[in-house]
Design a protein around this nucleic acid. Structure first.
Length: 309
DNA sequence: ACCCAGGGGCAAG
DNA sequence: CTTGCCCATGGG
């Protein structure tokens, strides 16, 4: 069986960092999923991965930030203390490259969902269009035309909730050819994000996710609740505002530079690991609740209803 | 019974 | 250009 040498690579961190949802962990610890449109099974080994199924070249292209070039990018990350701490803790985490449409569809499903749920929805979409009785590896991601013709109600039955309307509308726009990912070619990231936002269900955060995880644009900077907390915690100064997305984008561009999307990957994953890592002093193994973020910043939709009538 | 989750869209202010 | 509210679902 083919062994792919990827020194320093952390397969688990890479596939569980919320950048892709196209991989599922198997009982034996290996991962089954899709490198581009190629079904693959990969297993972590010292110094690289075993490719138990699928073409090695597709796996190599998928983990495109491995190797000496990837290492050089890590060395070029900004000398910011928080970034460097996160990098030191998650050095083996690498950027992946997903296909446009599955990435877009997954992140349209991601609104107000924890990462395991997003993965679950992604695979429900695959299995919903599989032949009767079929399972991996025969689970191609349904095309925009397939999703569009299924109808919104069918998507709701898969558990998409209010995201069903968005996904159906976005699939319809793509299926009818009223929009195409080739429009992003050559556009600056900011302008490409604006183009992506014309898709239903794609706002600023998801547009940047798509540009980073499908487009490989290292200056795309997804601003989710985690990133807002992290930046408040580390970068807020008494005088400055640093709350509105525009301010956060501006600060990130100036302070974290052209690799800010990559820096975001490490900050995000590191913070998420800190939250769930079992506390050594906690015998119950529940893990400590959360490090004391100075400003929790509840998402608007979940803000408690005012007690006063 | 709560609480929250890698948001987006829309109507008001 | 901001703020407030709604949108459904599942797991802790």
């Amino acid at each position: 069986m083919p062994f792919l040498s990827l020194p320093g690579f952390d397969l688990d961190a890479t596939l569980d960092a919320g950048q892709t949802f196209a991989w599922e962990r198997r009982a034996d610890g290996s991962w089954q999923g899709f490198a581009g449109d190629q079904p693959c099974i990969v297993a972590a080994r010292p110094g690289g991965v075993d490719v138990l199924h699928g073409p090695v070249d597709a796996v190599r292209r998928y983990f495109f930030h491995t190797g000496p070039e990837g290492e050089r990018l890590l060395d070029a990350l900004p000398p910011d203390p928080a970034v460097q701490r996160a990098l030191a803790a998650c050095r083996g985490l690498r950027l992946i490259q997903d296909p446009w449409w599955p990435c877009t569809a997954s992140f349209i499903c991601s609104s107000l969902k924890p990462i395991p749920h997003i993965r679950q929805l992604h695979w429900r979409l695959r299995r919903a269009w599989a032949a009767p009785g079929a399972d991996f590896p025969d689970l191609p991601f349904p095309s925009p035309a397939q999703v569009a013709s299924a109808g919104e109600q069918a998507l709701r039955r898969l558990g998409l909730g209010f995201r069903a309307r968005h996904l159906h509308a976005a699939a319809s726009v793509l299926a009818e050819g009223r929009w195409d990912f080739s429009r992003l070619q050559g556009l600056p990231t900011e302008e490409a994000a604006r183009q992506l936002r014309s898709l239903p269900g794609v706002g600023d955060k998801i547009a940047h996710c798509i540009l980073l995880y499908a487009g490989g644009r290292l200056d795309a900077f997804p601003l989710d609740v985690w990133m807002i907390r992290i930046m408040q915690r580390h970068y807020r100064k008494p005088g400055r505002r640093l709350r509105r997305p525009a301010d956060l984008h501006r600060f990130a561009a100036r302070h974290l530079g052209p690799l800010r999307g990559l820096a975001q990957l490490y900050l995000f994953h590191h913070a998420r690991m800190e939250k769930t890592r079992p506390d050594q002093d906690d015998k119950s193994g529940q893990g400590k609740a959360i490090s004391p973020w100075s400003a929790p910043l509840l998402p608007p939709g979940n803000r408690p209803r005012s007690a006063v009538a």
